[in-house]
Simulated scan of single mutants.
Amino acid sequence: MNVSMDDLHLFVLTVQHGGISAAAKQHSLQRSKVSRRLQELEKALGCQLLIRTTRQIELTENGRLLYQQINQPLGSVAQAAKLLTNQQKSLQGMLRVAVPAALITSNMFTLLLENYLELFPDVLLEVLHCQESIDLKRDNIDIQILPDGVKVKNEDYVQQALLRFPSSLVASNAYLQSHAPINALSDLFAHPLMVSRYNQASLPDDLTLRLCSDDLRLIQHMATTGKGIALLPTILLKDSLKSGELLPILTHEKLPEIKLTLIYPSRQFLPEKTRALIKLLRDAFKLN
């Protein structure tokens, strides 16, 4: 770690004046120089300190931590910089992950998190249930996983496609025995369907929707109790299909797939604990 005291001073001035341009103007400095030195400071520390917008700057969590520390006597400044660098390299502390309900209910994802916690016992893992794109930097979220079709809030974030999840149409045996037969997609118009909002858009508009939910386990339960035909990720149905609790319908038809996207703020300032989880996701979900 090679942190310049001058760069730390420019960081303090930028925070105190509320922006790079204001700090440069107040101290007769070139804006480009201040911006470049702040980038060098972030590079030396291995983490992002500021969220830059056209008119102002905001502090990241790391930026707030550094600013609080370097308001102390000068002897504490080097210690603060060392603390921040060590925090980025360590496999400890909190890791916050935002995922949709479709993934929370997946056995594959549960096993992946169990594996992560066993490998890194000093990491506190916080899993948030989130259906929409969020600003990861401002909300202090390390990773988000979103279904295809949800617009990412910040296009500058790293986005990586995960494995596609094929879907299956299923129903209980009791339902199929007591309702009109289903031999083609056109036969679905005579049946109530239960879907998630992630695959609803790919279905014909005239179908009778009985239930639309982000909770895939709820949809599966309703299908098991004979409330209609469910369209669900095949991976979620493995045990129910094996036991005969649910039966597949129209297996020869190509059905909608759910594609997940992995999102994180930056490749450059990835803490090791975040990098480790991304690697597990890469191995489990076969990142493209």
Results as ranks from 00 to 15, higher is better:
Leu203Val: 07
Leu59Arg: 00
Ser35Gln: 10
Thr251Leu: 07
Lys279Gln: 13
Leu250Ala: 05
Leu8Thr: 03
Pro192Cys: 07
Pro204Val: 02
Lys254Gly: 06
Lys33Asn: 09
Leu216Trp: 14
Gln48Thr: 07
Leu8Gln: 00
Phe189Met: 14
Asp187Lys: 08
Ser186Val: 10
Gln30Asn: 12
Leu236Phe: 11
Leu209Glu: 10
Lys137Asp: 05
Ala180His: 13
Leu211Pro: 01
Leu66Lys: 01
Ile104Met: 11
Asn288Ser: 14
Ser32Gly: 09
Glu132Asp: 14
Ala174Pro: 00
Leu255Tyr: 09
Leu162Lys: 05
Val34Leu: 03
Lys137Pro: 02
Glu42Ala: 03
Thr261Cys: 12
Glu40His: 07
Asp156Gly: 15
Gln92Met: 10
Gly93Asn: 04
Leu231Val: 12
Val99Cys: 09
Asp142Tyr: 02
Leu188Lys: 02
Ile229Lys: 05
Asp156Leu: 15
Gln220Lys: 08
Ala190Gln: 14
Leu112Lys: 04
Asn183Lys: 13
Leu10Trp: 02
Leu277Met: 08
Ser4Glu: 02
Asn115Val: 11
Val195Asn: 04
Glu114Gly: 10
Ile57Val: 00
Phe189Ile: 15
Gly46Tyr: 01
Ile182Ala: 10
Thr224Asp: 12
Ser4Lys: 04
Leu13Asp: 00
Thr208Asp: 14
Leu74Arg: 04
Gln39Leu: 12
Ser240Tyr: 11
Tyr264Ile: 08
Asn140Glu: 11
Gly19Asp: 00
Asp239Asn: 13
Pro248Thr: 15
Leu13Asn: 03
Leu203Tyr: 08
Asn173Ile: 14
Asp187Leu: 06
Leu193Lys: 02
Pro248Ile: 14
Leu103Trp: 05
Phe189Leu: 15
Thr60Cys: 03
Ser168Phe: 13
Leu241Thr: 06
Leu287Ser: 08
Asp215Phe: 07
His129Cys: 14
Thr224Gly: 09
Asp148Val: 10
Gln16Lys: 06
Phe120Lys: 07
Asp156Ile: 12
